[in-house]
Design a binder for these strands. Structure first.
Lengths: 333, 333
DNA sequence: ATGAAAGCGCTAACAA
DNA sequence: TTGTTAGCGCTTTCAT
């Protein structure tokens, strides 16, 4: 492999001068710069990133933890982050936390050990105390997406789940629905709780008794939506609309409803959350609340890049709006 | 930050001995090992990966290029790779090539510069010649998924698109279909070509004139399926089945068919490819060919890990089978 | 079994 | 503007 020394010899200058050119800092005369650049291309020199990082404590690597890269929701987010990284000339180390505190904290440690310049974290649990200490001590800047229980983030991006759910519920209410089922995700997730709050806000505003809305909790899986809907139907519950905790649940709901011979949206309206990949392919096409995942991923990296460039974003908190996507699964009652 | 020197002082031994413990190589007495391990935990020492990498030329980072992390198809693959990486105690640098030769080659260069120990590549284009040279010179092991035009890969994993398409076409033929449309992807992709070959093989076997199948090329987008189907319908083409190049195209086909008042699968059967996330949510649920993306991602890392451990997998070529997933979008004619 | 010493490739003070 | 020098933190001969 060709090193900086080879280049310096070939160009007849010192290593420092070459470094000044490659790292693009410090004064170099036009003449030498040209000579050096020629030597670099001729030799095909590529600076050793590890030596560089060891010396300068800068790697240009950004670490990224999401819940699960394999899920379309986070994949989109990662896609946005990656595009922004490329633009900012950074590489991206990526890891999944699987909504488990230990997995999440281990993932963070891995990234810190890798000497990432900064971290973008989408977590579902508080950071383990020992890891939180390490983060604080290392001074590595963090952009949090979603929660920020321990104030570790230099900047926080929140997705407005509250308003999203509030708007969705309002939509149902406006369409005349009063007997509504809410198939919610687990209370352990902060997004679930935010959505619940949004729902209640609409109910309060509209002077509707909270009891009118039957809430059931389960996992964010199609299966939960399917089984719960069947059980509700079979036990004789009457309802005109189902607000599904997310689009996966909604898919199960639709499946169950159809299986029992119900016509959608005539007999029952369904609304989802996320605007996941399959939402518009459901039949009827699902009315749902879009989460701007890609934009959030991009934004997180942009904020982090600014922090790394020395901008002081302390206490920055950005709330990104959700958007009601009206398709065909909700009708007037 | 605490370094190896701090640990050695605290434990009253030399740096070398500490290194022998952390790197787990060389002889260390039980007594000293214990003392050192205690010092490590007490001080919270974490070895500096860059110094380590600089010295030993091993980073335990695996680089991964796919077409687009944001797409559910590749996200699944990445998910499998990541799980395997975790198991093998490696980190994963990930980049997208966006099916563009320059993007792909630049992504590879980025990963090489990052001193990845090995690469897993899913490319759509031949590697640029300059990059191919660098790969060969660096000796960095590569596992290719899909194509291998330049024999850069120490191991190659292929997905059996040929048999998948052959089987799917056979399924249509067995159901009595003779007037079939194939909405194919771009010929530039090798997977597209493999599928075409599979289709022709079935036709040849069944003694059906190739001309019976009308082939149209377009992008792997829903929109292509939608527009092309409408245009075919409007120009009075008669057909009983559509073989869509992938599930996205199939979604568009179904949309268009329904929009023209056709009943599925009674009037027209549709079959897809990929078994993408939304396939089972389509209505009727899509009969399609599953590609084992997650398994492929996992397998690629496992092979690479073996190579990195010194196993000689030269010339290894594994073909992973696809699987026909029968749902409800195809019926007997 | 352990330690001393050299050096991986680079950058950043400092000097000139 | 450029070169000299001194490490960054670690691993790895080579002695002992």
């Amino acid at each position: 492999v060709v090193t900086i020394k080879d280049v310096s010899k070939r160009a007849g200058v010192s290593k420092s001068t070459v470094s000044r050119v490659t790292a693009n800092n410090g004064y170099v005369s036009e003449r030498k710069r040209e000579i050096i650049e020629r030597a670099i291309t001729e030799l095909g020199y590529r600076p050793n990133t590890m030596a560089r990082g060891l010396r300068s404590n800068r790697t240009n690597i950004i670490g990224n933890v999401v819940v699960d890269v394999a899920s379309p929701f986070y994949a989109q987010m990662v896609g946005g982050s990656q595009a922004a990284c490329r633009q900012a000339q950074k590489s991206m180390l990526i890891s999944s936390g699987y909504a488990d505190q230990n997995d999440e904290s281990n993932a963070i440690m891995e990234l810190i050990d890798r000497a990432c310049d900064g971290l973008v974290l989408y977590l579902e649990n508080p950071v383990r105390e020992d890891v939180a200490d390490i983060i604080r001590n290392s001074g590595i800047p963090i952009v949090m997406i979603g929660g920020d229980e321990r104030k570790l983030g230099r900047a926080v991006i929140k997705i407005d789940n509250y308003s999203g759910a509030k708007t969705a519920m309002q939509f149902l209410v406006d369409k005349g629905h009063r007997h509504i089922i809410h198939l919610s995700g687990p209370l352990a997730y902060r997004d679930t709780r935010a959505r619940l709050l949004g729902i209640k806000a609409t109910l309060a505003d509209a002077n509707i008794d909270e009891k009118k809305v039957l809430i059931r909790h389960g996992e964010y899986f199609e299966k939960f939506g399917y089984l719960e809907t069947l059980s509700l139907l079979d036990s004789g519950h009457k309802f005109t609309a189902v607000f599904a905790g997310d689009d996966d649940i909604a898919a199960g709901v639709i499946l169950a409803l159809k299986e029992r011979g119900l016509h959608l949206p005539k007999d029952v309206s369904v609304i989802g959350f996320d605007d996941n990949f399959h939402a518009r392919h459901l039949s009827p096409a699902l009315t749902t609340v879009r989460q701007p995942t890609r934009e959030v991923g991009r934004l997180a990296i942009e904020l982090l890049a600014q922090i790394l460039d020395g901008k002081d974003l302390e206490e920055t908190e950005i709330t990104v709006p959700t958007e009601l996507i009206v398709r065909e699964s909700v009708t007037t009652v």
